[in-house]
Amino acid sequence: MAPPTSRRSGFSKRAQYGTFLGYVAAFAGMLAGALVLVVAFMNRDAFSGLRGAAGDVVAPAGRTMAAGRASAHDLGAVLSGYLTSGASHARMQRELELARVRLAEARALEDENRHLRALLALREVPDRPIAFARMIASSASSTRRFATISAGAGQGIAVGMPVRTPRGLVGRVLEVSRTTARVLLVTDPESLVPVQRARDGVAALAQGHGDGTLQLRLINLGINPIKPGDVFVTSGSGGLYAPGTAVAVVIEVTRDGAIARVLGDPATVDYVAIYPVFAQAAAMPEALTAPPVAEPAALPRRKPGAKAATAGAAD
Rank of each mutant, 00 (worst) to 15 (best):
A248L: 04
Q16D: 09
R100V: 07
A54V: 08
V277R: 07
A181C: 09
R172L: 07
G76L: 09
V272L: 02
R217K: 04
Q93T: 12
A32R: 07
V293H: 09
R117D: 15
D265F: 02
R144C: 03
L98T: 03
T289E: 07
G212I: 02
R145H: 11
R128Y: 00
L109R: 13
R301L: 15
L120V: 10
R44T: 13
V231A: 10
G212H: 05
A28I: 13
R100I: 05
V250M: 01
V36R: 06
E112Q: 12
V195L: 09
D200V: 13
E252S: 07
R51G: 00
G86L: 12
G86N: 12
Y241D: 05
G208E: 02
A151C: 03
R14W: 12
A2F: 08
T268C: 01
R128V: 14
T84Q: 10
V183W: 07
M42W: 10
A287V: 15
F47K: 05
A198Q: 15
A53E: 12
L192Y: 08
L184N: 00
M161I: 03
M284G: 00
L218W: 08
V38A: 07
M65Q: 11
E110G: 04
A297P: 13
P266M: 08
A298M: 14
D56V: 07
I157R: 03
V247A: 02
V173A: 01
D45R: 09
A121M: 13
Y23K: 02
L184A: 01
R100A: 10
A258H: 04
E95Q: 11
